[in-house]
Amino acid sequence: MTTTWFRTYYEDEDLWLCFEADEESWAVRHMEIGGKDGRPRTAASLQEVLHLRDHADLAAMTRYEQRYGILADAPLDGWQDQPGATELTAEEFERLWGEARRVLGGGG
């Protein structure tokens, strides 16, 4: 099993998209961070989404999506060819994740 952490730049929105991807290139965690201000916009987790799907109601899922955004729902193959694509270390990703969750109000 290989986990990959990386970011790409989405110029149209001036956003860095940061991902933790599993061995099949599916997003496990996904963040969007503003380019100019560096402010986290989203920080969604597959584990949390699946837990809500299985144990909560639609209102809880809606609240989650409003706070943390929506997880990428397609394989992330070919990310290396995207603008500004850079592999991140696990430590870099965890630092960004912790900051994003703190800003968005959810702890680590």
Score class of each variant (00 low, 15 high):
2 T>E: 13
3 T>L: 11
4 T>V: 06
5 W>A: 00
8 T>W: 00
8 T>Q: 09
8 T>Y: 02
8 T>D: 06
8 T>N: 06
9 Y>R: 07
12 D>P: 08
12 D>W: 08
14 D>F: 04
14 D>N: 12
15 L>G: 00
15 L>H: 11
15 L>K: 09
16 W>P: 09
17 L>I: 14
19 F>M: 15
22 D>S: 01
23 E>P: 00
23 E>F: 00
23 E>N: 02
24 E>S: 04
25 S>P: 04
29 R>P: 03
29 R>Y: 03
31 M>R: 04
32 E>K: 13
34 G>S: 09
37 D>F: 14
39 R>E: 15
42 T>E: 10
45 S>Y: 00
45 S>R: 05
45 S>C: 12
52 L>I: 13
54 D>F: 06
55 H>P: 01
55 H>S: 11
55 H>L: 07
62 T>C: 05
62 T>D: 15
63 R>W: 08
64 Y>S: 08
64 Y>G: 09
67 R>N: 05
68 Y>H: 10
70 I>Y: 03
70 I>T: 13
71 L>G: 00
72 A>Y: 03
72 A>D: 02
74 A>I: 06
76 L>C: 06
77 D>R: 14
80 Q>Y: 02
80 Q>M: 09
81 D>R: 12
82 Q>T: 07
89 T>A: 02
89 T>C: 02
91 E>F: 05
94 E>G: 06
97 W>P: 06
99 E>Q: 15
100 A>W: 06
100 A>C: 10
104 L>R: 02
104 L>V: 01
107 G>A: 05
108 G>K: 15
